[in-house]
């Protein structure tokens, strides 16, 4: 008998990747909510959205507008919108040059372990960065992925009926002047982009495909690519 640590395709869990390209933050939240309801009912399989947003600050359950450290008119001038959201965590930034991943995952199929879920998201990013010879790690007590003392990926999740929404944001080549307008995660931390650390900066599509492959390996997914157009009710911000 051959013993293999790899799961066969039959043993893997079906998952669909929906590459949304560029999409508004609010519309993507509504899409997540619809998919979450369908996943809770078992009408769809695990579904992973990848997306790049317009400049937005999002404030999680533990966050506050006090973590925006510039006047309101500066935000308007920069075209940055602010959204209060139901994920965990504090304030973070989304915008062009950042790959955002929203897994709609039923954790009842993945061991009902919130810590392991977060750890797998982090590990997916760590493995991806390793492909670019970037050594990244966790910081105990501070979920996310770090390169030395600089944060390269943020995590914020919402779970109801053991099904997840929201997810992770990986900086590829973000506008740092936008990050400088907030205290990310309520901390005075420096952020970093993949572009700052890698010899070459691959396309967003290439990075998304590689990250999906890493996450697929960790979550034992058999991933197919879906058509986002079949899921949008509207794409307006």
């Amino acid at each position: 008998m051959t013993i293999s640590w790899r799961k066969s395709d039959e043993e893997k869990i079906a998952a669909v990747h929906l590459p949304l390209g560029h999409a508004g933050y609010s519309a993507t939240c509504r899409l997540q909510e619809r998919l979450h309801t369908l996943r809770c009912r078992g009408e769809i399989c695990d579904t992973v959205l990848s997306v790049e947003h317009e400049p937005s600050f999002t404030i999680g359950r533990s966050g506050s507008t006090a973590d925006i450290i510039v006047p309101q008119d500066l935000l308007q001038h920069a075209g940055i919108t602010v959204h209060k959201v139901d994920r965990g965590g504090e304030i973070t930034y989304h915008g062009p040059g950042q790959l955002v991943i929203y897994p709609i995952v039923d954790l009842r199929d993945h061991g009902r372990d919130l810590k392991r879920y977060i750890s797998n998201l982090e590990q997916g990013v760590i493995n991806l960065l390793d492909r670019f010879a970037i050594s990244a790690d966790r910081r105990p007590g501070f979920p996310g992925v770090w390169v030395d003392s600089r944060k390269i990926a943020a995590i914020g999740v919402y779970i109801k009926h053991w099904v997840t929404r929201h997810g992770l944001a990986l900086n590829i080549n973000v506008d740092k002047t936008h990050f400088a307008m907030i205290n990310p995660c309520g901390l005075d931390v420096e952020t970093v982009s993949l572009e700052d650390l890698a010899d070459r900066c691959p396309s967003m599509g290439e990075i998304a495909a590689a990250l999906l492959a890493e996450l697929g390996s960790l979550f034992h997914w058999r991933i197919s690519t879906g058509n986002p157009a079949e899921h949008w009710d509207d794409k307006a911000v």
Binding site: D86, G88, G144, I159
Partner: peptide, 8 residues
């Protein structure tokens, strides 16, 4: 909330 996660 724990680990940057809201759990309902």
């Amino acid at each position: 909330e724990t680990e940057k996660t809201t759990f309902v």
